[in-house]
């Protein structure tokens, strides 16, 4: 699949989660929206923040921080939703990624992208397409098709409804 010429450049959009900077192929990005609160769908994993209405189309929003094992995204002035097109099971699906902030678009020659390290990152290597360098900063280039593959997103740690049952026993104590 990746038979691109080494001199070919690709444009990347970078965004930050906590202190880390990630990049995704601009071709995958459809638009960037200001934060809007999503309608939570009961029973879905926590990182599936819910659904939002984008001009009459309903798209799911994924909390990228939760997805990558960080704390839940808190709303700031910079918080936004990156709407992108993901190939899932050879079909294109539109999906929003909730991120702390969007930074810039830059070009990177293919030759300047290094393969993902086998170990030593906090991130699962199958999510990483490669590591790029930009102003001496390491940028993790994500394979978003993998990040958002159906298995990844529908895999339930535990159904919320089931966890609710355990939670509710504490409820009488607090009220």
């Amino acid at each position: 699949m990746e038979t691109t010429n080494t001199n070919e450049t690709v444009q990347y959009l970078t965004f930050s989660l906590d202190e880390e900077v990630f990049a995704i192929d601009v071709a995958k990005v459809r638009e960037i929206l200001d934060y809007t609160s999503a309608m939570r769908v009961p029973g879905a994993p926590d990182f599936m923040r819910g659904i939002v209405n984008v001009r009459g189309n309903v798209i799911p929003v994924v909390d990228m921080r939760l997805k990558f094992g960080m704390s839940k995204t808190e709303r700031t002035v910079n918080t936004c939703i990156v709407v992108m097109e993901v190939d899932v099971e050879s079909e294109t699906t539109v999906l929003g990624a909730l991120v702390d902030s969007v930074q810039e678009v830059f070009e990177l020659e293919h030759g300047h992208v290094e393969p993902p390290p086998k170990m030593g990152t906090r991130w699962r290597t199958q999510f990483i397409k490669g590591i790029g360098k930009r102003n001496d900063q390491l940028i993790i280039i994500l394979d978003i098709d993998m990040v958002f593959s159906l298995n990844e997103l529908t895999q339930l740690e535990r159904s919320r409804l089931a966890s609710k049952a355990t939670a509710s026993e504490e409820a009488p104590a607090t009220t």
Binding site: V41, G43, A44, M48, V58, P60, T93, T154
Partner: peptide, 13 residues
């Protein structure tokens, strides 16, 4: 409107 494939396993909705 369908919720889409990411919510396919959600039964209640």
């Amino acid at each position: 409107k369908p919720l889409g494939r990411y919510y396919k396993h959600i039964n209640e909705v």
